[in-house]
Each structure stands twice: as C-alpha cells, then as structure tokens.
C-alpha cells in the first residue's frame, strides 16, 4: 500500500524554485522544489493559509508560478499553448473543498462535464456516468439539481466528476470532510485503488486520523516552504 511500491521514476509534476505571489502581496510560497513521481501517493498538510490551495492550483494548471518552473507531464507550463494546457488538464482530476459543482445542473450533468468537453459519444457518457454514480450511491439522485443535494451528496458528485476521466493525476482538497465515516472509507478505497492502477494522488487534509490510517508520504507546508516526510515504516508484530 505504500507509495514507494507504485512509484515509477518519471516525475509527472516537477517544481523547481517555484514562488507564488498574488499581486504585490508577500509571497505565499517561496523557492519550492517538489517532484511527484508517477504512481505516487501523498498527503498534503499545513495550516490554513499555508499555501495548500496555491500548490494544488499549480498542479491542476489553474495557476502559473510567479517565478520558477513547473513541469507537468514533461511540459513546462510556462510555455504550453492554451489548447495544450486544456489537453493536459483532461488528464488531471480535481476535488475541491467547496465542491465547485455547476449548481444549476443535475448530478448526472456535473459528472458528465469532463467527458463532454472531450467530445465523447453520448451513449458512452451515459454508461460511464451511470456506473460511477451507482458506485458512489447516487444513482437515484442523478437527475436532482445540485443545489438541492446535501453536502455529502455534493462531495460524492465532486469526487465522481474528478475520477470519471480515469485521470493520471488526482488532486483532492479535503475530500472526506463532508461525508460520514462509511462513505469516507469507501472514497479513500477508491483513491487507493486508483493509485494502485497508476494514478498519482495528492490529498490535502487536516485529518491526522486519515494520515495515520493510510501510511503515505506527507508534503507539509509551513512558513512558505515545503518539506516532504516519508511514509513511516510500520513495524509488524513479528518485529
């Protein structure tokens, strides 16, 4: 289950001397160096305002660094065309803390968005969306407008939308924050399973319980800089 077991050698995300500054405000992140190998699994921790969202935003290509270079799938995002960026984003799934669903659309239509933007056939979209909504136990609510769903249901729609494309990178910001324990366990199993199949996963969380339960390396943000803590080796009973 450890990340090292799945990790390859090719980094899917590579950041060198990256700094982020909004306007004339002080830097949020300073001189960051980070390399995420293909198939790795990391937790992202840090206090509120430590820069977790900024770091994730760069990973899902919504933010370019103020200085330094960010390379995703081997492409320096500073030089990628808009269409190339769109094609790279299709390989990344994102779960936002505030869900960012299209509130006027149904659960089905929200989950279908990543497939529609790729131009997938309607019949294939229906098959895949229905299957995934059944898996997150939302099949009966698929026609409900998102604004009428509960927090937990929205969370599950957001997660279904993030994984529907079978992404190569999955980024999640507090993905289990609004769901009960059973659903949280089920969702974590989904992330682990996706990681086992080769998806690089980064989960931002405040939950020490989650971090302890799943023994993966941890990226910690503090004082504008970043530290990576390796997975703790668990001692077996025999040891």
């Amino acid at each position: 289950m450890a990340a090292d077991r799945n990790a390859g050698t090719e980094p899917v995300v590579d950041m060198q001397n990256v700094s982020i500054r909004y306007g004339t405000d002080p830097e949020v992140l300073s001189d960051i160096r980070l390399s995420l190998e293909k198939g790795s699994f990391h937790f992202l921790t840090g206090k509120s305002g430590a820069g977790k969202t900024s770091l994730l935003s760069m990973m899902y290509l919504a933010l370019k660094p103020s200085s330094g270079t960010v390379t995703v799938f081997g492409t320096n995002i500073g030089f990628a065309s808009r269409d190339a960026m769109a094609l790279m984003r299709r390989r990344i799934g994102v779960v936002f803390q505030d869900f960012r669903l299209l509130e006027h659309l149904s659960a089905y239509d929200n989950v279908a968005v990543p497939l529609k933007v790729r131009g997938m056939k309607e019949s294939e979209i229906e098959k895949r969306v229905r299957e995934l909504l059944r898996w997150v136990e939302l099949e009966s609510s698929m026609n409900k407008i998102c604004s009428t769903l509960s927090g937990g249901e929205k969370q599950r729609v957001a997660i279904a939308r993030a994984v529907i494309n079978r992404p190569e990178i999955l980024l999640a910001d507090e993905p289990t924050g609004n769901v009960d324990d059973d659903i949280a366990q089920k969702l974590m199993k989904l992330f682990v399973e996706m990681n086992r199949l080769g998806t690089t996963v980064v989960i931002a969380t405040h939950s020490q319980e989650l971090i302890n339960q799943y023994n993966y390396p941890r990226i910690h943000l503090e004082n504008k800089s970043l530290k990576v803590f390796p997975a703790l080796r668990r001692l077996s009973n025999a040891e």
Binding site: A62, A86, R89
Partner: peptide, 16 residues
Amino acid sequence: GQIIEILHIMGAKDDY
C-alpha cells in the same frame, strides 16, 4: 467566470 474556470479545469478548450 466561475463556471468558465471550472470548465477550463475540467479540460474544456476555449472553442468549447
């Protein structure tokens, strides 16, 4: 703007 940002993050090209 927010919907457009979400669509971009989902991989929509400007043409879409």
